[in-house]
Design a protein around this nucleic acid. Structure first.
Lengths: 117, 117
DNA sequence: GACATGAATCGTTCATCTACGATGAACGCT
DNA sequence: AGCGTTCATCGTAGATGAACGATTCATGTC
């Protein structure tokens, strides 16, 4: 195989195609619901750690997350699922592994919503 | 009784005695734990609504909260307890009623922690 | 094709959350 | 003292969450 084709993070922080700032309101019933769902996803220390990990390494990690946390692989997988369903994280299949990275839009959205309090 | 002594919000948004900005770190294991606890407290739509209510009326409300939410009084009381235990809200006894108001410091802390993500 | 590796899903157990009605405690008023 | 009001707490039932080991599935490698 040619060198340089070997690895490299497959999953960049999302194409981010110049989508303007989020237009959705930060108040009202829908926003409340949204905020509560996002907050619930963040409401577990393991998930906070995962988010921090993914923010820090802007390149995305894979099963390294499992190594960083004192939890079983299946448990970490569940936490990742929660974060994925909340839209805070995105997973991309990269050969035998899976590459996770943050969804910056949702993270910004969370900050807006919290900021509106 | 003399007029003007009648009502008026008893519970102002905390003395706030010139305590400088929060010095605690926004990262690390303790911060993660803190963030997850605060987020969990916010992780329910009813509690978001309560927070919004209390932020809006800077004067604090009491059982009016119960009237605003489609929940039983006991349920609202439990949500208030959760918010109180998280330090996001403060309750003050005012005669037969209880006056709730936000704890601005904790709210700011939450914003800092979320902002650090 | 057989095999190993990495990750998701399943099934289970135990704990926590949510909601309610009922009860109880504190207070103001007559 | 007695009463109504306001809120917290209790007890309970059902739902959801957290954690694990075992299993399954997909993908590369030999």
């Amino acid at each position: 195989m040619s060198p340089q084709l070997k690895k490299g993070p497959t999953c960049a922080p999302a194409p981010e195609p110049k989508l303007g700032p989020d237009l959705r309101p930060v108040e009202g019933d829908e926003a409340d619901e949204e905020l509560s769902l996002l907050a619930k996803a963040v409401g577990h220390p393991a998930r906070v750690q995962i988010l921090r990990l993914l923010v820090r390494r802007e390149a995305c990690v894979c099963g390294d997350i499992v190594d960083e946390l004192p939890l079983a692989q299946s448990t970490v997988s569940q936490h990742l699922k929660v974060l994925k369903e909340a839209g805070l994280v995105r997973g991309e299949i990269d050969g035998p592994r899976v590459c996770y990275c943050i969804e910056p839009r949702t993270l910004r959205r969370l900050k807006s919503l919290v900021g509106s309090l």
